[in-house]
Design a protein around this nucleic acid. Structure first.
Lengths: 138, 138
DNA sequence: TGTTAAATGCAACATTGTTGCATTTAAATT
DNA sequence: AATTTAAATGCAACAATGTTGCATTTAACA
């Protein structure tokens, strides 16, 4: 996923491929795990705070990034997988925070998760986990 | 659960049974579902904003209330069930937001939820659901 | 190359989080 | 019932982020 890929993706989702947007996406990709807002802010110091705010909103609205985790007042953002479409987000994955290395990653459950509550209709599920990740779990 | 009950609970958890604390707990109880911060703020206008902030922190730290849900910048607080102890919170329950009546409630899954990720050690699980609640699902 | 809707930057304000400190108070002790 | 004291509260102040409006700039298209 390079600048060209993101340029195409942005245009597909009817967003102009501007400097700030490409920059943010490349930085998030470099970061590898879900990127906390403070780190995003830090790495995007050159652009206006409001532009960053609106950039995050737009990318989120178009299913290019998503809010992966939230801890206290720190929101972690991640680039959506290729299965996410503008219309339908595939967020059946889990969001995992490792208490050792403190990274937040998107994972898949080994089994399909089934949750039901009698007489309730469930339309969306968000699951946040904490523990020790594969790399730290030695 | 009346003022006396909360007075005892606070003392059990080594917190003084003060006006603001009892007030908050009674208001949250009246509210029945998980109470959004803005509503808490509104109903606690008479006390200082900082006191409210610290009151929420203390009650949370002692397992008397918990953060049930968070949407955008709105945090919903709920009174912990009687199974929650100071040392060990019983938050195996689910947090559900109804998209019709917009209330947030704590629910139980009809089956025990099992989540696992290969090579990961999971220590805590938070599940947030959206859909239509029992009362609205007619 | 020119046009235009979209994006950006700047100013301004709102909300919530957070700390320090002086004053007040709950509750234990005398 | 009065005294004592650690805890709780209120106030001031500042930080961080959210949010809007508007003038200027720019990506994308004709």
């Amino acid at each position: 996923m390079d600048a060209q890929y993101f340029t195409n993706l942005l245009r597909e989702r009817e967003l102009k491929a501007t400097g700030p947007r490409l920059n943010l996406l490349l930085k998030m990709q470099e970061y590898e795990s879900a990127m906390p807002y403070s780190a995003i802010q830090e790495s995007m110091k050159s652009i206006d705070r409001v532009t960053l705010y609106r950039t995050l909103e737009h990318l989120k609205a178009q299913g290019i990034i998503h809010k992966a985790y939230q801890e206290n007042n720190e929101i972690y953002y991640a680039i959506c997988g290729t299965t996410c479409k503008k219309e339908k987000h595939e967020h059946e994955h889990l969001h995992f925070k490792c208490t050792k290395c403190e990274t937040v990653t998107c994972e898949k459950s080994s089994k399909k998760i089934k949750i039901s509550i009698p007489d309730f209709k469930i339309s969306s599920t968000s699951i946040y986990l904490e523990g020790v990740c594969k790399l730290c779990n030695v």
